[in-house]
Structure formats: C-alpha cells, structure tokens
C-alpha cells in the first residue's frame, strides 16, 4: 500500500522506529506502508517511508495508543540502509 501524498514529495523520508517487545506481524496492516520486523533481542523495528512530519506524529500517536514503549526514532536514507533487520542496536 502507498501513502496518499506524492511519493516524491520533499517532506517524505524513511524512518526506523524501534519498539520494546516483539510486535506480531498482524499489526503491519495497521501501520500502513511500514515493514514490521521482530528482532532476536526482544525489540521490534518499524521501517518505511513517512509522508511528512504530521504523518510521523500520527504514527507515533498510534503507537502510543497501544501502550508500547518507544526506544528510538531514526530518519535515514533508504539507499544506504535497505535491510533494517541487520541494523545495529542503539
């Protein structure tokens, strides 16, 4: 699925959001367009394009709504990092 705003919009950026606990893959539909990867260390990485800052805040709020603990939020260039599952920890 894709986000509504133009994919080439200049506010669009890739984000990697790390969460405490392994989140089931069934949540992926809920966090539209993001890849959800549960890691061995008991954390989960949400990774994908976010249309703009407002969308990012909306996403963070949805995470808040399920009471999950937020560990980190990174913005990064998808060209340099295409495999979130092998990313270094914090």
């Amino acid at each position: 699925m894709t986000h509504q705003p133009a994919p080439t919009g200049r506010d669009r950026a890739w984000y990697e959001i790390r969460l405490q606990g392994q989140l089931g893959t069934h949540w992926a539909t809920r966090f539209d367009g993001m890849t959800l990867t549960a890691l061995e260390d008991g954390t989960t990485v949400l990774h994908g394009p976010v249309a703009d800052q407002a969308a990012l805040h909306g996403l963070l709020r949805q995470l808040g709504d399920i009471g999950i603990t937020l560990l980190s939020v990174h913005q990064h260039d998808p060209a340099t990092s295409t495999t979130p599952a092998t990313e270094q920890g914090d």
Partner: peptide, 17 residues
C-alpha cells in the same frame, strides 16, 4: 477498553480485511 479494542482491530484488519 481502548487497548483491548486496538488489539482486536489490528487482528480483524489483518485476518479478515
């Protein structure tokens, strides 16, 4: 309850879209 319904909706959306 808010949390419970969030979990139910995620499950419904994923299993029976």
């Amino acid at each position: 309850h808010h949390l419970f319904v969030e979990a139910l909706r995620a499950r419904l959306l994923s299993d029976h879209p």
